[in-house]
Every structure is written in C-alpha cells, then in structure tokens.
Design a protein around this nucleic acid. Structure first.
Lengths: 204, 204
DNA sequence: CGAACTGTTGAGCACAGTCAACGACTGTGG
DNA sequence: CCACAGTCGTTGACTGTGCTCAACAGTTCG
C-alpha cells in the first residue's frame, strides 16, 4: 500500500522489481475497470504513444527502477534484443487480456471469482505453478478492487467468496489470506473447461 | 462469407489484404467470446507460441497473403524493422483489448451496442475517422456474432438496435446496412465519456 | 472517542437472459 | 415448381442473476 517512486513514473519507463501494480480505466460517472495486473518482475511503460488514458497504481508495496523516457527509447533503437523481449512481453499481455475478455463477457459471477483466485495463485505462489492440490497466498487486492477487476460489485465478490468458503473449497484468514483446499474443484468452477473448436478456420 | 485460404493459415503467418477476420475463444459448454476483430490491412499470426487456443475465422470475403511459419520467423530474426512494426501493431491490439475490457466489464447493454457501432464505423468507413456528423456502413457481423463480441445475447442486441432506431439515432436497411444519423448522440450513448483520473499514480 | 474504511449480509428490484413463436429469406430435393 | 428445412432477425412473456440500497461489525487512525 505504501507509495514508492513518483508521478513521473508514467512519463518514464520502469522495471517493476517487487510488488503488484494495477492498470485501470474509468468512465466519467465513476465506473472503473482494472485492465491489467502486473506482477514483478515486469516492465512498465507504453512506448510509441503519448496518450494512453490508462492509470497505473500500486496495490502493494512496490519497488521500481525507473529510466527517463528518452534514454529507453534510444536504447530501443540501438538494441534489437531489447525490443525483442518487449515484443514477447506484449504478446503475453495480449494473451492475458484476451483470456479476461472471455471471463468478463461470458462467465458467471462465481466463475469469475474462481478464475480470479486461480490467476492470483498462479502469479503469487509461483512455486505451485503446475497441477498442485492446494495453495495458499495473500490477495493483493481489496474486495472493491477485485470487483473492478471482474466487472461485478464488491457485494457480489463477497458473497461468492462466502459461498466458496461454505462449499469447503477455500478458507480465509483476516480477509486477505486465502487457502485453497481443493484446487481441482476451484479449477472446475473457474472454467467449464476452455476448449477450442476443432473445425476452426474452415472458412479461412 | 466465402472461404479463402485454408486450415494451415494458423500454422503459418498471413497478411490480411481485404475483409474482416474474427478471433474467438470458447468455453466447453458452447459459450463463445470474440476476443478480436481484425480489419485489412493487418498481420495475422502469433509468434513465439505453439498453443494459442484462439480460433481465427473469416466473417466476410477475405484475401490473404500467407507465408510459411519458418520463413517469417527467420525474417524476424534478420530484420529489426519487421519486429519493430510487429511490436507497434501488438501494442495497438493490446490497447484495443483493454478498451473492450472496460466495455465488457462496466457498460450496459445499450452502451455496448453503441460502442460497437462506433468501433465498426471507425474501421469500415475509414473516411469519416474524425468527428463526423453522420456515417453509413455495412455490419460485417451477424447479430449472433455481435452478441459474442459484446458478451450479451443476440436477442438483447436486436432489442438495443430496435431501440436506437426508435430513438432516431440510426436507420437500418436489410438488417446489415446501418446509417447513423446522429453520431454525436451515438457517441454520448457509447461512453459516459471515458475519463482518466488526474491524481493517478499518487501511490506509484 | 468518533470518523473513515473495509468487508459481510439482507431485502427488493431491474436489467438482461431464457424460452418460445413468428416472418423473411435461402438453398435443397422431390 | 413448390414444399421443406435451415438460418437469421425480431418480438413477447417470464424468470433469475447480479445490482442497489441499507444496516452492521471489525480495524485503523486522528
């Protein structure tokens, strides 16, 4: 929650060394949507564009390593290797964004919350990446932030978490620490198993 | 609607020379979400990844210029210029995806439909890019596809279009051709004016 | 202590989903 | 040629998920 770095962070570029940053967009009437969550280590900044209309905000304690905009853009011109890595990261972010488009557009509230917990577990507790049976982690976001991430209200988030607790899928301590007792159940709740059609591209 | 190219289009890379392609993701129970619409000219293909779990499908007549995967990846290694342009395109796609995250997560059905019409007008009728008073174009998508794009049902899409017609904002001919009589009204319906907070990054 | 913030829970309602019927059009085969 | 099935779009009636409004408990901080 504490602030590190300064406001020039937008105009410059930074490496996120530790902590979690949220990217948000807002409508004028106050409705807000989190459009990206970045976990360390991650590169922050949007090359080739002045006006992004995206707000970046730290959600946990954060350490940054910032560079002036000009320096980074010079570096990008000189080093194809740097641009290559930036491209890879951007492609990954695009994949993640598209995954969330499915979640926001087509999943129910309980599926959204389950998907969110899985995503957090994957990124925070990096040890249990594979097909673990259980997991344990601290939520980096408040209920209100989770609701802005999932496109629902904080009341609905709270109710769905209560439901997961009642079903014995998770336990919660201090409203922030989550213990997943049954990852498999959580997974089956999150995704009615994403599938790709086999007959894709018939028309291409 | 007709099919051009073939199934190897996924494994290879292509330039989309004309027409419109949709990128979709599906859940196993049939729910589907369009995660991207690409208008010509556009580069198709996902470098550095085997498994994308995204389906690409033509929604109009399409002409492609395809290259074998290996050739393009060799080219990318050799030419920083090529990779540079690919990075720019990817960043733009990421911006669009994030814009749609707000639409899917936080807008009402009527706002979604209005936003969709504006987006199509911007991409199809490329002449009236700026602040035009009216516009006219053919929808590249069916009602069902629009609903998969907006994360709502086709019935709701149909009702919202009827409503826009009743309000005198648009006229429709043959279910496909849309004439926007009042772009300003359409704009005000689409976005309770996107705004960025001024105090962003206080915590960064 | 009171104020502010976060999280939980309840009661009622509304927006969008579901289910169903129908018209217009298209292509198919008897 | 026409009957038929299939797709697409529209509209109506009803329902349910998730939103709104509200009260309340637990913490933190001045």
């Amino acid at each position: 929650m504490e602030l590190i770095g300064d406001a020039q962070a937008v105009d410059s570029y930074s490496n996120l060394l530790s902590g979690v940053v949220k990217l948000t967009k807002s409508l004028s009437d106050g409705r807000q949507q989190i459009v990206g969550l970045q976990f360390a280590p991650h590169f922050l900044g949007r090359p080739f564009k002045v006006e992004s209309s995206i707000n970046a905000e730290a959600v946990t304690a954060v350490t940054l390593c910032s560079f002036p905009r000009a320096a980074v853009e010079r570096m990008m011109k000189g080093s194809p290797e740097f641009e290559h890595r930036l491209l890879k990261q951007t492609l990954n972010e695009l994949d993640e964004a598209r995954e969330w488009l499915v979640t926001l557009g087509r999943k129910t509230a309980s599926e959204k919350v389950a998907s969110f917990l899985l995503m957090i577990a994957r990124n925070i507790d990096s040890s249990v990446d594979p097909v673990a049976r259980s997991a344990s982690f601290d939520l980096p976001l408040t209920r209100a932030e989770i609701s802005d991430f999932l496109g629902i209200t904080n009341e609905t988030v709270s109710r769905q978490l209560t439901q997961l607790r009642a079903d014995g899928v998770i336990r919660i301590e201090n409203t922030r620490h989550v213990m997943v007792d049954s990852m498999s159940r959580l997974r089956s709740m999150a995704m009615p198993s994403l599938s790709q059609k086999t007959d894709s591209l018939d028309r291409l």
